[in-house]
Design a protein around this nucleic acid. Sequence first.
DNA 1: AACGGCGGCAACCGCTATCAA
DNA 2: GTTGATAGCGGTTGCCGCCGT
Length: 287
Amino acid sequence: MGRKPCCDKVGLKKGPWTAEEDKKLINFILTNGQCCWRALPKLAGLPRCGKSCRLRWTNYLRPDLKRGVLSEYEEKTVIDLHAQLGNRWSKIASHLPGRTDNEIKNHWNTHIRKKLKKMGIDPLTHQPLPPPPAASPDHDNGHTDGQSKEPDDKDKDSAVSADVKEPEHAVPSFCVDEVPLIDPNEILIPRHPSSSSSASSSSMSTPSNSAVIGHGNIFKDLEFPELEWPWDYSDNIRLWDDEFDWHPNLLIEEGAQGRMSTGPTDTPSAVNYSYQVPVLDQISWTS
DNA sequence: AACGGCGGCAACCGCTATCAA
DNA sequence: GTTGATAGCGGTTGCCGCCGT
């Protein structure tokens, strides 16, 4: 019959991850790739369930993540996609390389929703909000503040979702389909880089504020003794710039051996892999 | 300086679709 | 075809830092 349970929940740790745990997880995945999440905790020596490991990795530790505040452009993208897809955060995130569904969801709930409301736009229907009722406390039921989302929002949310039956090929109002997006399955990580990482770093300006600095911190702070970090993440892992105004090619050095992959673990001997990313000019906004 | 409230974010929970036995 | 595990997704919670009083 079926498979073994993913994890016996006894003795498994919950709550915030420690640097030590992060280290173990990163170390394991960089060494072995992403195999099955169920087996990973045991193999990596982590007192966590596989699900927790997967979330930690996908939402926080993945080296291709771009952290930090969403740029104005990204916000626009999120709003536009949300108008069409509803709360399908993973679909929305798939259009924003380096961003996770969790991150976008959080940003939506904490920033964008308020912003839209402030602008008089219903964050759920994306239509102009009706003018504030002159005096209708009866209908109001005292829920006029920002927290009034609950039942109302939910209903509308599902309405939006229901409208978009199959968003698989939902086309945003900007033309991203012409633009090759980075496939997260193809993030290649060199483990034994040559010393000449200048090829990539020279073509990219060092971000002054960028979230990737966060990556640098993460990875540097962890200080893996057994892992030679191939590059300064703050320079080279930055696939997307906040302003989307550059034409980067992320070069993976010769001798690359490691691979981040969610797919089958065929071992690539990848060299000189480069990304094409959309450029602002190629995207036209409808509003 | 201390306290309380609030906001932001990481992580967990629960559900569902998919896949394997 | 059925059952049950797995992976993924969206909603929610709880912790922590910041800010105002």
